[in-house]
Design a protein around this nucleic acid. Sequence first.
DNA 1: GGGCCGTCGCTTTTT
DNA 2: GCGACGGCCC
Length: 746
Amino acid sequence: MSAGTLDLLSGLNEGQRAAVTAPDGPVLVLAGPGSGKTRVLTHRIAYLIRERGIHPSAIMAVTFTNKAAGEMKARVEKILDDKLKGLQVGTFHAICARLLRRESEHTPQRADFLIYDTDDQQSLINQALTELNLDSKKYKPRSLLNTISGAKNELIGPREFVGQGYLGEVTSRVYSRYQELLITNNARDFDDLLMDTAILFRDTAQVREKYQRFYEYLLVDEFQDTNAAQYVLVSLLAAPQNNVFVVGDEDQAIYAFRGADYRNVMQFRKDYPQAKVILLEQNYRSTQIILDAARGVIDQNTHRTPKALFTDRRGGSPITVFEAYSDQEEAEYVVSIVEQQRKRQGMDYRDFAIMYRTNAQSRALEEAFIKEGVPYKLVGGVGFYKRREIRDLLAYLRLVNNVDDSVSFNRIINVPKRGIGKKSVEDFQSWAAKQHFTFSQALEALSNGEVSSLGNSAIKKFIEFNNLLKAWQEIAQSNDLAALLDDIIAQTHYTLHLHETSDTTDEALERDENVREFRGLLKDKVGISLSEFLEEIALVADVDTLADDMNAVTLLTLHAAKGLEYPYVFLTGLEEGILPHMRSFDEPDGMAEERRLFYVGITRAMQRVYLTYAFRRMTYGESSPGVPSRFLRDIPAGLTEGMSARLTKDIDRRSYMEETTWDKPSLPIGSSTSRSLLSPPPTPKAPAPKDNLKYRTNQNVRHAKFGEGVVIESKRSGGDEEVTVSFKSVGIKRLAASFANLQILD
DNA sequence: GGGCCGTCGCTTTTT
DNA sequence: GCGACGGCCC
């Protein structure tokens, strides 16, 4: 064995070593959290290249985010001390997009197709609904898109799609029209990237065989979060030699909502019975207490392979549980602990991560961080690319790239105002459709003086617009994207438009600033073509934007936290309806997935975990009461500090509301840990006088459909009484008293 | 054609 | 509490 091999394998445990040096053929690595799976993947690639003499370009590795891909490539290059030409590392989506462009002659879309995000999809589905004369109030675009996305992930195209009943029939029509529109717009949605590539491989032997020959070795990270399309892609690409190396952990499957199926891990064992299976159980990240807590949680899930995670890091600090009065107080608590631990333990801001179930929860946290001047970085949320001014300018860029993009066309045809109103746009579209023209053909036809059904002044305006587009396309040829943007802003008087459409000067200045930032971004893209730039920004993940070099506290969703680790981790908003999320109550396997999400959160921590929940939380702009998450009870007693006695007993919501001391002004504030808040504890407000109300807190009631439940809160709302009831079967519901017809039981 | 104002429905999670 | 959309009026 050469010195190089020793390098590659030293410091690896037995399981890791077995994985890295596994012979050709299928390999399945079942890797618990913190068991060094990234290490195994990088060392495996390095091993293939150095010890087996495989050319880097014959290796494809698939990761979950672009950030992970970049890190993986950098680590392999560091191990081998070499720049690796042709090593393909990327996300499924990015790899598929590239492939579909290269093989565009075998597909309906052209090589320069656009990638539509969720907002674009929404506009397109609305367009389809309008064309089909369907009411978007009756057929929710969101839910239609969910169904369509689900079908695509199962490789069911619009032709094969069969829906149940009338709604299914409608969905089928919408799906077909939506897909036609995507093709005429020369665009693909995220799901198409996977579906179209899988179908291309499945149906076109010539293409399939070409890539099968080209990529001799395939490695896939986070295999538990692959969907059917991805599974098919992997198996088609890996054949016939099946040098496929997959790494995953069923307990960390958290993407079922986008079609992922952790059973793919077991399916892999069935499809490749000769696969070498390696279990990685030693954890190098967390203390024993953290692992025991995590295990207490995940053991509640049935139908799983039990794992015995262990670590050499005995003991550790207990898990701290904190009950706050409000979401605001919860946020203040988090900030105060960060400051306290930073000073006492000599931690850096970058050592802390604050996690939550939904993006909306970041708001209260951000406010507290800003108030106390503690630096933080937010992952995802309402991102830069969601802002109106950025979307407008992006729509211009996209239209320059591809005039047939109807979503961008509709967005900016009259923004800023150029006198082309709704009526003119409709006339233009129906005329173009009648002539079987694409948008670009229709604009050209008007410019060439072709007779149309449009009015003369409208025709003139469309021709002017077409001339602008042509001039911009000219500039785009030079690949100077900043110059292109400058010209678009100048010709359209966009800055003036921003000031006219902003409510305050401050708002206008902020939007201006965003435009400048966008310009700066384009300025850095030297030598990159417009279509390359558009692809780059379409496929960035939220975590991809995380700045590692910045010393600040990280705020992120539990989903975004996958694959990351931090010395200190806060899991916030641990309340019924949030984690577990309300929407999971009536989904099959919903609760198990929520529990895995909680598990993923806890296992990100190296040293300490803080679990927090609030008695009251702002939702929809009003404060409503909450109940501690059931998951808190899954943590074995003895591992926590500050856990309320109320939680260690298995009590129902009703007794929680009775036993809690919040909202009862005669009693002292019943917080469970010593307070170290930056601001004094809030004074709980006395319950508002509940005159004329039929229902009262703690009353037992029965609903015709939901069954028995307990009233959490009741209050006036409009002319009616609004009752919040926690039902045994369906959880918390908010009802209008006059319609709900609740029967009072006691 | 465009601007203003009221109503509604809504929030998981993401490439 | 906010943004999308529709109706109404100039």
